[in-house]
Design a protein around this nucleic acid. Sequence first.
DNA 1: ACGCAAACTTGCACTGACTGCAAGAAAGGA
DNA 2: TCCTTTCTTGCAGTCAGTGCAAGTTTGCGT
Lengths: 198, 198
Amino acid sequence: MTSGLRERKKLATRQALHLAALQLVDERGLDEVSVDDIADRADVSPRTFFNYFPSKVDAVVGLDPSALQQQVEAFLGRPADESPVEAMRAVTREQAVEMAEDTELWPLRLKVIDAHPAILGRLAAAFGESERVLAGAIAERTGTRVGIDAYPTLLAGVAAAAMRTSLHRWFTGDFSAPLPDLVEETWDLLTAGLPAPH
Amino acid sequence: MTSGLRERKKLATRQALHLAALQLVDERGLDEVSVDDIADRADVSPRTFFNYFPSKVDAVVGLDPSALQQQVEAFLGRPADESPVEAMRAVTREQAVEMAEDTELWPLRLKVIDAHPAILGRLAAAFGESERVLAGAIAERTGTRVGIDAYPTLLAGVAAAAMRTSLHRWFTGDFSAPLPDLVEETWDLLTAGLPAPH
DNA sequence: ACGCAAACTTGCACTGACTGCAAGAAAGGA
DNA sequence: TCCTTTCTTGCAGTCAGTGCAAGTTTGCGT
């Protein structure tokens, strides 16, 4: 289908670097891990590290660069009779299902991120980037304009907040509750206009 | 009231560094500005720069470190008969009023941030930090538990999204629309459960 | 199987962010 | 005025991150 040897090797190297970064930071903490350490464990030269990730924290976060585009396409591909909120909710639910399938990487990622605010910062930036792009897609679908109308930026931001909230609860509950269920609960709260609890 | 000479000087130096960073980055772009440049314009040594800000981007963002605590106190100090959403909304509106009073710094900040995604990342991290703390305050007020219940984390995240959305529209509209009005509109959308536009 | 072109890895040298330390200067208070 | 505390500064050092050029590996047509 896609894969020559070259592409498989690249993917393997990328994953090795990400995993090495994740494990090392989990073991020692962010400041006690150098790029050289990560490159060593992944069996590549320090210089090669920077061919794969632009910075140390990026390697720890290790986000799939194609995920954002997939998210946008999934959103735009939702049935036309769904409201924007319904479509956005469906997309985040699908993401949750995929994340939950991975029983190793995401828990470790969340553990490390939770322990290191600096990494959380980079993650937040990624969410911000995602928000920008998503807002454009939402505007396209609803006929609103980013920056002029509140709707697209707000919905994108709210969707990101919903995902963050769900991930946080997933982590806090030691991954016992199914992530998609947590996502559903969160969206129920949102569409009800955030009624006070109790 | 508070101010000895020493404290006034510290505040002045901090503001000078922040303004210098902001102007220089606006003029040349983030990568064309070094810490030495910023320190030069603010008339302090490069080493002193790091006594005030832990990094270059932090100086550009230049957030008031006490703002977060004030926000939490403002939230906890709202009348007990207000719902959490009403209280949160009131706090963000008050913030908006304060921000709008400053007709120089915030517009420049937003302009620079909009032009430099790397800075936006740091800002997002600050919002994330704020969310964490706020979530704690919300939990305290509502008797819910951060990490267990969705409510506190979600409301904090949504409030941050509302502020980001409003700031973005304020900037896009060249600061002609009153920021507090934009905040109100955004919260109206939220409490209505994000109804589809049109 | 061969050989060329493109892509990937690596080492080297360099810039600049950031830190710890210790000495000097400035401010506050008795 | 003297002493203490705090702030500033220079120095030396570590490490992140980048451009370049040489060497290596893979893809592909022949």
